[in-house]
């Protein structure tokens, strides 16, 4: 460059500033990568322990076994020292309770979303929405306590008064509490979805002389269906992964049953009961919790990915 004068926009401290900015930039990227690291950490730590588990127990016995009774042997020559690690009763129990929860939450959540989005005056909306948000914000341990304290005895009493045998920790009690917990989730997601259906479709239907109910049932709901099904999938995934309600209200009995009045147990309950208290990280009992964990992670992940794809596709359609 020789004797050319330095142009005024060539800064002499550029390299120093650049270095500082580079450090900040790296810090920012690192932070964003923490989220990725968490996912990798989850997958690897679960897979690592689950791998040890499957060295002890074959995956066929795990996936297709119908008996779950994880014991640690006190003496090595004890009868049944291995325990049984058949996951089916847990899967069926989880699905049963989730199904009860969804059977309650879907109609309630959808009906309230429709009311909020289409009928409620702004004033009513401003009262009802926060109420539902409170319902969503109450910790699940509170729902669990309430289910065990009030709902389960109530169902038992009602059952026995009409001559039905009801377990004291019935799937129904846990399912009802979980269902109510999920109502706000479904209603707020569906409310958003219904609101994003364009007003012009409503106008077209009203312009033809349809009543509001006809417009909602025949135009708005079909148009919103993909978005709503996405929200139901997300809700199902929440139900499957929910822990405290079932720990407190569903109990430990690994019965292979689809009767809502029986006591059943779930994947999450077993993870908690296997890992609270003393643990040895070489026993099949402790390691089985990680096999359950990776199963839970995979199932909820698949549900979420599908749900998010559906919802994203739905939004692009009307944006």
């Amino acid at each position: 460059m020789g004797n050319l004068p330095t142009a005024p926009f060539v800064s002499s401290n550029k390299t120093r500033r650049r270095l500082g900015e580079f450090v900040v930039y790296v810090l920012l990227i690192t932070s964003a990568l923490v989220a990725v690291a968490v996912t990798i950490g989850i997958v690897f730590s679960l897979a690592f322990e689950a791998y040890h588990f499957f060295q002890l127990i074959s995956w066929q016995d795990f996936l297709f076994g119908t008996k779950w009774s994880p014991q640690t042997a006190i003496r090595s020559d004890q009868v049944g020292a291995e325990g049984s690690f058949g996951v089916l009763p847990l899967v069926v129990g989880t699905l049963l309770i989730s199904a009860i929860a969804m059977a309650i939450a879907t109609p309630l959540g959808l009906a309230s979303a429709i009311y909020l989005a289409e009928y409620a005056t702004p004033r009513a909306r401003s009262i009802i929405k926060p109420m539902l948000e409170i319902l969503a914000g109450i910790p699940t341990v509170v729902y669990g306590f309430f289910a065990a304290l009030m709902i389960a005895p109530f169902i038992r009493m009602t059952g026995s008064s009409i001559g039905l045998e009801v377990a004291s920790e019935s799937a129904l009690a846990a399912g009802i509490a979980m269902g109510i917990m999920i109502v706000p989730l479904i209603s707020s997601l569906s409310d958003d979805v219904i609101n994003s259906v364009p007003q012009s479709l409503r106008d077209a239907s009203y312009g033809l002389g349809a009543t509001q109910a006809e417009t909602i049932r025949k135009v708005i709901l079909p148009a919103a269906l993909p978005g709503i099904s996405g929200s139901l999938l997300l809700a199902t995934s929440t139900a499957i992964g929910e822990t405290m309600i079932v720990v407190m209200a569903a109990g430990m009995a690994a019965n292979l049953s689809v009767n809502p009045l029986d006591a059943v147990t779930t994947v999450t309950v077993q993870i908690v009961s296997l890992l609270t208290g003393d643990q040895e990280f070489d026993s099949a009992k402790t390691l089985s919790a990680f096999a359950l964990g990776i199963m839970l992670f995979c199932v909820t992940l698949v549900l979420n990915v599908i749900a998010q794809k559906i919802v994203k596709h739905f939004r692009e359609q009307y944006d």
Binding site: A35, V38, T39, G41, I42, S45, L46, F48, E49, L234, S237, T238, I240, G241, E242, T243, T268, I271, V272, L275, A289, F290, G293, L296, F297, T300, L301, N304, V305, Q308
Partner: peptide, 17 residues
């Protein structure tokens, strides 16, 4: 987005392991 919907107990397993 997916991490936001992972069941909380799975985070507990991660912490333990």
């Amino acid at each position: 987005n997916n991490l936001a919907a992972v069941p909380s107990i799975v985070f507990g397993l991660l912490g333990l392991a």
